[in-house]
Amino acid sequence: MPGESWRWDPSLYAGSAAYYARGRLPYPEALADALTAELGLDGSGRLLDIGCGPGSLTLLLANRFEQAIGIDADADMVSAARGHAAEAGIANTRWHCLRAEELPAGLGEFRLITFAQSFHWLDRPRVAAAALGMLTADGACAHVHATTHQGRADGPALPFPRPPHQEIAALVRDHLGEVRRAGQGSLPRGTAGGEDLVYRAAGFRGPRRIELPGRVVTRRADDLVAAVFSLSSSAPHLFGDRRAEFEADLRRLLRAAGPDGIFSEHTHPVAVDLWLP
Rank of each mutant, 00 (worst) to 15 (best):
A80Y: 10
R180D: 04
D138H: 12
D196G: 04
A105H: 15
L276H: 15
G177I: 13
A182N: 06
A192H: 09
L122Y: 12
A81G: 15
G206Q: 10
L122W: 12
L238F: 08
R162V: 00
L35Y: 13
G185Q: 05
T114Y: 02
F204H: 11
A221M: 07
H96M: 03
P54F: 03
L35D: 07
D174M: 01
L253Q: 06
L25Q: 09
A157P: 09
R251K: 13
P207M: 04
T136Y: 02
I210C: 09
G203L: 11
L47G: 08
S16E: 01
I262Q: 08
C52K: 07
L238Y: 12
P10W: 10
A91V: 13
L48G: 07
E29V: 12
T114W: 04
A73E: 05
I50W: 04
G258T: 04
T93H: 09
R162C: 00
G155R: 00
E66V: 00
D138S: 12
P159E: 12
A142W: 08
A131H: 06
A100N: 08
P26L: 02
L187M: 10
T58S: 14
A80M: 05
R173T: 13
H266G: 01
D138R: 06
W275F: 14
F229M: 05
P207F: 12
R215W: 14
A140F: 11
F65P: 08
A81E: 12
G190N: 13
L276W: 15
G133Q: 07
D154F: 11
L47M: 07
L47S: 10
P163I: 03
R152T: 02
L12D: 03
E211G: 10
A201V: 06
A14P: 01
I69W: 09
A62Q: 08
S264D: 02
Y27W: 04
D33F: 05
A256E: 15
I113G: 04
E109T: 11
T218G: 06
A157H: 10
V217G: 01
E102A: 15
P161R: 01
A235S: 15
G55W: 12
D174N: 11
P10S: 05
L98G: 09
A80N: 02
Y13R: 00
A18I: 02
D49W: 05
E87W: 03
I113W: 10
D223W: 03
Q184G: 05
T191Q: 08
A129I: 00
L132A: 14
